[in-house]
Design a protein around this nucleic acid. Structure first.
Lengths: 228, 228
DNA sequence: ACACTAGGTCTACGTTGTAGACTTGTCAAC
DNA sequence: GTTGACAAGTCTACAACGTAGACCTAGTGT
């Protein structure tokens, strides 16, 4: 027998708890993740969770770590540095996309959890391979990753309910608000109202977002090299 | 006499309340902004605030509007579209910079409050002037503004206390955490630890951030034009 | 003189995170 | 076995939060 008998295995463990907390967040948003609720879902007293997490922030951090663990970092290869960088950033976004309401939790964990550190290190490798100084690579990489988190967090339809009826209502409300604007004063906003509220396609939304980040990196690098 | 006598002027009004709520947020963070606390500060019962705000979200929205009102939008001129765009984005960032802990509140108000709408419309004008389609301008502008909000929100040292002693402690903690990493496994991260924790200069941080966004826009536009 | 109303008060409820003292099931060592 | 220790879960309790609903009250328009 191991130190803990298998059939009487611990009923609670941090990974399982973080996973079902994430499930709650996915459906009802982060503010629905509550100590009491999570405890109820596991037929346990609220205080039981404190044997596994020091406090609620610790639980939220575990959710963030859970998301970072989903990153499927591509192997280094012989592609150009910017192509590989795009692949790394895409892998990051792909890990976050299924969980737009919780994605923000990764922000404070990238430089703590191992998968986040691995991604950050790879990102800086590629940036320095492109020609950035180590310090510039740090700042550029930092903002790039932050922008991508925001890209996921603010994915249209992310902040709303998952219930299709309430969601449809919220969309109608937004549409009405933009529709009530004066087309004289705001011709472009009113013309693009539909796009602003809900993008053409989610895939297009993300590929454009990553394009913007990568193009920004290339552009800034060109300026830096030209300045020398 | 006006409709309200001047000496018996209303003790509370939404603008003043939003302003002092913002002051609290600046010093102690958004979670310190509490109905009860704000009421206390104005020698009033918590419920009194509900005569001026329908609920707490409404109060937070008012803080966001307050920030957007600080945008000093530059007049249109004859500069190239991208130069003017940079000026607009810089004006936005300049309005948010003094309030990194509250800047996120603008996200949901840009397309509601007038100064936000004005900025959004100007942004789209310049993007279409550059050659983007209206729909692309909408998506590109959206993400650019979101990225800049995040730039301010995640400004190193923004999430921490304003108290210099606690702040210094937090910095030490972070530095220690990064310093404890293996330089073998994470050579670049450990080499850039100082930069990652606290950038060289705040001005440089922001100008690099805006450079990244503008360069991204130019780069994506070039791809779009080449694709045609 | 009078009713109306905007603005503030009082009381009360349900929900949240969590401290502190307790119980209990399991294993190691004698 | 018996015992002691320890990890895991329970119970109780508290302070702080947002806010509903009924009330009061001073000033205004008629």
């Amino acid at each position: 027998m191991a130190t803990t008998s298998k059939e009487t295995a611990k009923r609670l463990d941090p990974e399982t708890l973080a996973a079902s907390a994430l499930a709650i967040a996915d459906v009802e948003g982060l503010e629905a993740v509550t100590i009491r609720r999570l405890a109820n879902q596991h037929d346990v007293t609220p205080m039981a969770l404190y044997r596994h997490f020091s406090d609620k922030n610790d639980l939220l951090a575990a959710i963030g770590d859970r998301l970072l663990a989903d990153i499927d970092l591509p192997e280094p290869n012989d592609d150009r540095w910017d192509v590989q960088l795009r692949a790394v950033l895409t892998a990051f976004v792909d890990a976050l996309r299924p969980h737009p309401k919780a994605a923000g939790l990764t922000l404070f964990r990238i430089l703590v959890a191992e998968p986040g550190l691995a991604m950050a290190e790879r990102t800086m490798e590629l940036l320095t391979a492109g020609g950035f100084s180590v310090d510039d690579a740090a700042e550029v990489g930092r903002q790039s990753l932050c922008s991508l988190i925001t890209l996921v967090t603010t994915e249209p339809g992310a902040g709303e309910d998952t219930d299709p009826v309430a969601r449809e209502d919220a969309l109608r409300m937004k549409r009405a608000a933009l529709g009530a604007l004066s087309p004289r004063r705001y011709p472009l906003i009113t013309a693009a109202a539909d796009t602003l509220i809900c993008p053409t396609s989610t895939d297009r939304y993300y590929s454009l977002g990553i394009d913007l980040v990568v193009a920004g990196i290339r552009g800034v690098l060109a300026e830096r090299l030209r300045a020398k």
